[in-house]
Amino acid sequence: MNLIGLGLVGFSALLLLLFSIAKRKSPVKLRAIPALTRLYRAFGLSVEDGTRLFIALGRESLITPNAGAPLSGLGMLRHLTERTSLSDRPPIAAAGEASLALLAQDTLEAGYQAAGAGEYYQPTTGRLTGMTPFSFAAGAMPILRDESVSASVLIGHFGVEAALLADAAERENAFLVGASDDLSSQAALYASAPEALIGEELFATSAYLGATQSHTASLTVQDILRWLIILALLAGAALKLLGMI
């Protein structure tokens, strides 16, 4: 069993490397995700009208199996910071876990430096708002209300409390995109957010906002692996039907 896991990781790594090299020569082609297209437009407008962008990264520690979602959120935070750092009101990132909040601050600073505006970085724009699900939401809701936020992104590991943030954003007429790796949160966001990303769309955000070879290659590898899993499931069902397993 361990060898199958190691083989899958090794095979994925090999495919990622190969496609990263191959994608350097071919133009990037991605299917349209309307939520991300609208987000791109919303954060452009937020820079123009001097309002703020808010990014909530969820409450998951990076040393748990659910670390993929906050890592994806940090990637998005980096892209958005680079593009909005020269705005009158800098973006604010909130986390519900202390080490994630520290990484958010680090990512914000790196984004400012990459945009050549390192001196404008303010450490208070990366915040720990609470350390339990509801205290995180309760701490993040006043940011949406009091700090002139016009566009917000919930990206990371959330529970159903994400619906409270979506409701707070709606009350302030702020555009909101919600993306979580948790099923109950996805259902809550589907019902309450203007735009919700479902399933693996969460992990495609960086590729759509600032596509590099490795990002687009990882989407291709995900597609290949998904097809392999579909084939394996169909083969398993057929063998079971035939009574061979």
């Binding site: 990781v9 979602a69 399933g199 992990f203």
Partner: peptide
């Protein structure tokens, strides 16, 4: 799969 690729 998304988590795997992000980790890699």
């Amino acid at each position: 799969l998304g988590t795997l690729m992000t980790g890699l």
